[in-house]
């Protein structure tokens, strides 16, 4: 018990931060737009973790009231994250629809190639 406590404190914080930073890194570093959306999903789910972790009481149970149980997890973070998951799928669907449209307009979903193509069009127009 004494050995696991500091370890779990380190792991919960460390992994939450790692997931958040990994998602952020993918969003900035990768030019592929589908990969960017994957990174955004990683980032989002780290926030889910950040909210759900403090609601837990060790030895408790899910917040469904029953005379057989005394200790329950706090229900409020669960409600907030339920909303966040559903909103997340909405934004993801919109993002992927945009990616598909970009692919049809530019023939690629790589950020660098799209920027290069835009520059080429601009130079052509100027000449």
């Amino acid at each position: 018990m004494t050995l696991i406590d500091p370890l779990i404190a380190l792991a919960t914080r460390g992994v939450t931060i790692f997931l958040m930073v990994a998602g952020l890194y993918v969003v900035i570093a990768r030019g592929n737009m589908v990969k960017k959306l994957v990174g955004l999903s990683l980032f989002q789910s780290s926030v889910y973790l950040l909210f759900i972790l403090p609601g837990k009481i060790v030895g408790g149970t899910a917040p469904i009231i029953d005379p057989a149980f005394e200790v329950y997890a706090h229900p409020l973070p669960h409600v907030l994250i339920l909303t966040a998951i559903v909103v997340g799928i909405g934004t993801l669907a919109l993002g992927l629809a945009l990616v598909v449209r970009i692919r049809e307009a530019f023939g690629t979903i790589e950020e660098d190639e799209i920027l290069a193509r835009e520059d080429a069009v601009r130079v052509e127009r100027d000449e």
Binding site: I52, G55, K56, G60, A62, I64, I81
Partner: peptide, 12 residues
């Protein structure tokens, strides 16, 4: 999420 007692969130 199931281990963390957030069963509704786990299902979603």
């Amino acid at each position: 999420f199931i281990v963390l007692d957030a069963v509704d969130v786990a299902m979603t």
